[in-house]
Simulated scan of single mutants.
Amino acid sequence: MLTRRFFAAFAALAVIAAANFASAETKLPAKDKFHLFLLVGQSNMAGRGKVEDEDKRPDPRVLALNKAGEWVPAVDPIHFDKGAAGVGLGKSFGLQIAEANPGITIGLIPCAVGGSPIDSWKPGEFYKPTNSHPWDDAIKRAKLAVEKGTLKGILWHQGESDSNAKLAPTYDAKLQDLVKRFRAELGSDVPFLVGQIGQFEDVPWDEYNRQVDQAHQNLSKHVVNAAYVSAAGLKHKGDKVHFDSASLREFGKRYAEAFTKLTK
């Protein structure tokens, strides 16, 4: 008798739990009203800013695809590449785009991988520090996302790992190839936005930083529908590498402004 009562009670609890889970799931809009943006690059795209109260507040019109492939409210950190993931530029970008487009829900697809050089963003490449395949994982997640929404843009921030004598000279050609591969794989010439690497007052650039930055600035001369987003005046969080939280929120707004200008 006790056994039957136990299983009956367990079954009842399972039904309640399932109902609660279903009610907690994020309801998605129609596919054409769900605008998706792929977030790719290295740690400054993933975000290493300190998470504060404003970063924890969800907005019903800005969602993010979590590690498990589920759409959830975009609450920082939305990336999961490393334990150090924090505030990034994605959420502020999404909020700005949503505000400018009534009736549209924004879906962020976080795929940045901290420390990854551009050479790791190729099919089949394994990036040992995070035990991941940056390119393959991003394409897989992007294709999962577009089952529910419409891809509208790709946001790229990367280049710190390539700012050296060995890699900087070939960065320009590799970046152009990367854009072409993303567009070919995802079947769309959506806007491609590339952000400037940190130009901090107390961290002077060398010739290799300048070479990578020039490749970023020149991208729109070689591929259509591309834009460069300035990081002028933004600050690091004390480590001379990663933008602080306030700067990342501002950077996201700058990406949004660049996207709006490009699409107009």
Rank of each mutant, 00 (worst) to 15 (best):
L175T: 08
L95C: 04
P102T: 05
P102A: 03
A165K: 15
E160Y: 15
D136F: 05
G103N: 03
E147C: 07
Y127L: 14
L167P: 07
V113L: 05
S92N: 03
A100G: 05
Q158V: 15
D177F: 07
A165E: 14
P129N: 06
G107Q: 03
C111S: 14
S116G: 06
I109E: 02
G107I: 06
V146P: 10
P169W: 02
H157D: 15
F93H: 01
P129M: 07
K174R: 13
V113Y: 04
I139Q: 00
N164V: 10
K148L: 01
A145V: 11
K148V: 01
P169M: 07
D137M: 11
L151F: 04
E147K: 12
L108N: 04
G149T: 11
N131P: 06
Q176E: 12
A142R: 15
E99C: 01
A168R: 11
G103K: 02
A173F: 10
K128L: 09
G124L: 15
G114M: 03
W121E: 05
P129S: 08
F126M: 11
W121L: 09
A145H: 07
C111Q: 14
W135D: 09
A138E: 13
D136Y: 04
G124R: 11
D177T: 13
N164Q: 08
A165G: 07
W156Q: 14
A138L: 14
I139S: 01
L175E: 09
L155V: 13
K122N: 10
Y127S: 11
S120H: 05
W135G: 06
A112G: 00
K174H: 08
S163A: 15
K91S: 02
E147D: 13
L167K: 08
L167Y: 08
T130G: 01
V146K: 13
K128F: 06
K140N: 08
Q158P: 12
L144T: 12
S161E: 12
K91V: 15
S92K: 00
S92M: 00
T170W: 02
G115P: 14
K166M: 15
E99I: 01
K152T: 05
F126Q: 13
K166T: 15
K152M: 07
A165C: 10
G107K: 00
D119T: 08
A142V: 13
G149P: 15
G124H: 09
K91Y: 00
N164S: 05
P134V: 03
A142E: 04
N131Q: 12
L95K: 02
D137T: 12
A138W: 12
T170Q: 09
Q96F: 04
C111V: 04
G153L: 03
L108D: 02
P123R: 03
N101A: 02
A145Y: 03
G159M: 11
L167W: 09
G94L: 00
A165N: 09
I109F: 00
E99D: 14
G149C: 10
S116I: 03
K143E: 10
A145N: 09
H157V: 07
P102W: 00
